[in-house]
Amino acid sequence: MWEPEHRWLVWIVVSAVLACTEMLSGDFTLLMLAAGAGAGALTAAIVPGMWLVQVFVAAAVAGLSLALLRPTLLRRVRETPGYRSSLDSLVGAGGVATRAITDDEGQVKVNGEEWSARSLEPGLTIVAGQKVEVYEVDGTTLVVYPVSRSIAPRSPGAPLI
């Protein structure tokens, strides 16, 4: 069994694993939890025998970081020039219709994921298997048009056809 004076090492390992895993998500949640674990490690180094205090400090630091620091970091990242959310990055991506797409409904596969879709042009039906390109994202529905058909560029903010 671990001696109480070595529990700081467990906190450090937990903090490192959380911080490394954060690189996969980019959401700052795991980073805030890693900060809490780091505070738990510091507390364990100062008061090695008081595990309940270590847990309380780790939880408090993680909770405060999530509540106060994470929203600020997310806002700053999203306000940087050139930032595109994962949904915004779908615009211009190619895909294939997996079900017939009309101006009301349909389904498309883009970047290996299935999405609800609708046609950009009213009255146009895109048959299953046809290649499409994403024109815009409307909620969780992709507005698409067939690659074989060119479209006129529209100015930003202009209504759809």
Rank of each mutant, 00 (worst) to 15 (best):
W51M: 06
E114G: 04
G95Y: 05
M50C: 10
D27L: 13
P71V: 02
R78L: 03
M1C: 02
I46R: 01
P71L: 04
G40V: 11
T29S: 03
W8V: 09
D27H: 12
A35S: 14
A44Y: 09
S150N: 09
M1L: 09
L9F: 13
V127E: 14
R84A: 10
G106W: 08
A19T: 06
T125K: 05
M32N: 02
G82W: 01
H6T: 15
I101G: 02
R118Y: 05
A37V: 06
P122K: 06
L42F: 11
W11A: 03
R7L: 15
S148P: 10
L90H: 04
E22W: 12
T98R: 13
E121D: 11
A45I: 00
V96M: 13
T98F: 04
V13P: 04
N111G: 14
T141E: 00
G49P: 03
Y145L: 12
A97D: 01
D103K: 00
P4K: 10
V127A: 13
A93P: 03
S148H: 12
G123W: 10
G40T: 04
V61I: 15
G49R: 14
T43I: 04
V57R: 02
A44T: 06
L73G: 04
R99E: 15
K131L: 14
P159R: 02
V143C: 10
G38S: 12
A59H: 05
V17C: 00
S116H: 14
T102I: 08
T72D: 03
G38C: 09
V17F: 05
Q130S: 10
V143D: 11
E105D: 12
S148Y: 02
V14N: 07
R99F: 06
L33D: 02
Y83L: 07
L18V: 03
I12C: 15
V57H: 01
T21I: 08
V14E: 08
S85C: 04
D27E: 15
G95I: 10
T102M: 08
T72S: 15
